[in-house]
């Protein structure tokens, strides 16, 4: 069974919205976009490298997929996901032509993701995609969380975990980066 590994940038109050730029996701009037930028450190990139090395697919919500597509479709050489199969979940997208090797999932999300996990292959990585993420957490489909925890409170914004779902976790790694960012990995404890 393939694992789904979720990577998120997260604030001290659990917010994951628009870590990379002010325009990335302004839903709910979110005004703090780009909050990770002052804390960049090359170790963050190295952590991504470790995660991607064991993966061959990317599973994303529409908004995160569109962001990545805009950045990487014109620039195949700089695309860290080159060679990855991409799966985008959306009920509004007409096609997944915007980024090479992408497939659209427009219905039966939980069933489709279960199918993906049962196919042969390496791990499936997710980042951002807060709405899809909640669906997967609610259905116990996430196998690992890789979190970069930033030393700030944002005060509002979309959160990692959905309301109403208890998830027991096991800490597998915790490291401190020189910029005050923590890198933590957790796996759900399944009984």
């Amino acid at each position: 069974m393939r694992k789904i590994i979720v990577h998120e940038f997260i604030s001290l109050d659990g917010v994951i919205q628009a870590p990379g730029s002010p325009t990335e996701d302004t839903d709910g009037g979110f005004a703090h976009g780009g909050w990770t930028l002052p804390y960049w450190h090359d170790e963050i990139g190295a952590h991504f490298g470790q995660i991607f090395a064991d993966a061959d697919a990317l599973l994303l919500g529409r908004k995160t997929w569109q962001g990545h597509a805009a950045a990487f479709e014109p620039n195949p050489e700089g695309d860290p996901f080159n060679g990855f199969k991409k799966f985008v979940v959306s009920t509004t997208l007409q096609s997944a032509d915007g980024w090479r090797d992408s497939t659209l999932i427009s219905s039966n999300v939980v069933e489709e993701v279960r199918k993906l996990k049962s196919q042969p292959g390496k791990s499936i990585v997710m980042d951002g995609s807060s709405i899809l993420l909640h669906t997967l957490i609610e259905n116990d489909l996430v196998d690992e969380y890789a979190l970069h925890v930033y030393p700030l409170v944002l005060g509002d914004g979309k959160r990692l975990f959905p309301d109403g779902k208890r998830v027991n976790l096991k800490l597998t790694e915790s490291a401190v980066l020189p910029t005050g960012v923590l890198y933590q990995r957790y796996e759900p404890e399944r009984k």
């Binding site: 001290l12 109050d13 703090h32 909050w35 030393p151 700030l152 409170v153 944002l154 005060g155 401190v176 005050g180 923590l182």
Partner: peptide
């Protein structure tokens, strides 16, 4: 209800 606050680890 706390506004954006940077912290030092």
């Amino acid at each position: 209800n706390i506004e954006q606050t940077p912290m030092k680890l």
